[in-house]
């Protein structure tokens, strides 16, 4: 299974392809549920129970618990759905950028600014 056309890897980049779509389905379905404020509140009340309800596997549940963005991507998470999990945590996309690149938030923002020069 996977891509009909074999592609070279783009460093630091996750293509959400067939393999990821299958692997990440439960995790992404949980994150999609966070469109609803009621579901977000239910998650906050008991994270473990909510993860169990959606059938997350061990790697996915561990990455949720650790707030590991790269771990969630590796477990098949799709950024568009993961963004809703980040919303619960009150993280913006510069926070997420900092977490994934190992930079501080200010360093990450400086990198963005430099790209416009």
């Amino acid at each position: 299974m996977g891509q009909a056309v074999q592609q070279r890897k783009i460093p630091g980049t996750y293509i959400f392809d067939a393999a990821a779509a299958m692997k990440g389905y439960a995790l992404n379905k949980m994150c999609y549920s966070f469109n609803s404020a009621e579901n977000r509140a239910e998650f906050v009340r008991d994270e473990d129970a909510y993860c169990r309800k959606y059938g997350l596997d061990a790697a996915q549940a561990a990455a949720i618990k650790a707030r590991s963005v790269l771990g969630l991507l590796a477990a098949g998470g799709n950024v568009y759905y993961l963004a809703k999990f980040a919303g619960i945590l009150g993280l913006d996309v510069q926070d997420l950028g900092a977490l994934q690149t190992g930079l501080s938030k200010d360093e990450f923002k400086a990198r963005l600014l430099a790209a416009g020069a």
Binding site: I10, P11, G12, T13, Y14, V69, L70, L73, V79, L82, A83, V93, L96, G97, Q100, T101, F108, R111, L112, A115, G116
Partner: peptide, 13 residues
């Protein structure tokens, strides 16, 4: 723009 992965923050003016 790129939000995800170690290459997050990538831009190409």
């Amino acid at each position: 723009h790129q939000l995800d992965g170690e290459r997050a923050g990538f831009l190409n003016k």
